[in-house]
Amino acid sequence: MTGVWVLVGVLAVSVVLGFALRAREGRVRTGTALAALPAQVRELIDPGSAVTLVQLSTTFCAPCRHTRVLLADLAERTEGLRHRELDLTDLPEVAAQLKVLRTPTTLALGADGAELLRVGGVPKREVLAEALRPHLPA
């Protein structure tokens, strides 16, 4: 009988964790202050754009492909917005410097390299567009 209670407990904890992780998926957070951007990321910033979306991906990340399409389309349709991608597969030191715990992670960087926003997981298009609006030209 004890085994059944343990199984029920583990199942309950798993369900709660699953809902918690799902709620965080694609959530836009304000940027974190970084001491310095790694050179690999700094090179991707477009100084002629108000915001550069830097997508941090890995080679075998399926959600990264969906994110790439979504961000490229959003950047194409939005003035002052650019999309770039960096593969972190062979760059664990860059992931550590940027405090990236999962892929895809999208950083919205200003022309000066300041992190404006951060999204873990596949972003929700409308939510991201609304969060970026104050940082883009009118």
Results as ranks from 00 to 15, higher is better:
70 L>Y: 03
86 L>Q: 10
124 K>I: 11
137 P>S: 11
117 L>D: 04
135 H>R: 15
129 A>W: 01
3 G>S: 13
43 E>D: 14
57 S>Y: 01
45 I>Q: 04
138 A>H: 14
61 C>P: 01
111 A>Q: 12
1 M>Y: 07
37 L>V: 03
17 L>F: 11
106 T>G: 06
45 I>G: 11
136 L>K: 15
47 P>S: 11
124 K>W: 12
81 L>Y: 09
37 L>P: 13
17 L>I: 03
75 A>T: 03
53 L>A: 09
70 L>E: 00
90 D>S: 13
97 Q>R: 09
21 L>R: 07
44 L>R: 09
46 D>E: 13
127 V>W: 06
27 R>H: 02
124 K>A: 14
7 L>I: 08
28 V>E: 06
50 A>H: 12
44 L>E: 02
52 T>G: 12
40 Q>T: 08
50 A>K: 13
17 L>W: 10
117 L>H: 09
72 A>T: 06
62 A>F: 02
96 A>W: 07
98 L>G: 01
89 T>F: 05
122 V>A: 10
130 E>G: 12
115 E>I: 06
40 Q>G: 03
89 T>H: 04
3 G>V: 03
11 L>N: 07
63 P>G: 02
100 V>H: 07
122 V>L: 12
77 R>Y: 01
38 P>C: 01
68 R>L: 04
15 V>H: 07
64 C>Q: 00
59 T>C: 00
43 E>A: 14
41 V>M: 03
22 R>I: 02
3 G>K: 07
67 T>M: 06
11 L>I: 12
39 A>Q: 11
16 V>L: 14
20 A>V: 08
113 G>E: 03
69 V>E: 15
8 V>W: 03
123 P>E: 01
60 F>V: 09
74 L>S: 06
93 E>P: 01
115 E>W: 13
87 D>Q: 14
131 A>T: 04
120 G>M: 13
115 E>A: 13
45 I>T: 02
25 E>F: 06
19 F>I: 13
75 A>G: 08
116 L>H: 07
58 T>H: 10
28 V>M: 07
23 A>G: 05
19 F>V: 14
16 V>H: 13
28 V>T: 05
58 T>A: 09
74 L>C: 00
137 P>W: 14
135 H>A: 15
6 V>D: 02
13 V>N: 10
118 R>G: 06
85 E>D: 15
39 A>G: 03
136 L>A: 14
56 L>Q: 08
81 L>R: 15
28 V>A: 02
132 L>S: 08
112 D>P: 10
72 A>N: 08
132 L>P: 10
108 A>K: 09
46 D>S: 13
34 L>W: 10
76 E>R: 14
88 L>M: 09
18 G>D: 00
133 R>A: 15
89 T>P: 01
103 T>P: 00
31 G>T: 05
26 G>Y: 04
117 L>C: 12
3 G>Q: 08
124 K>C: 01
86 L>N: 06
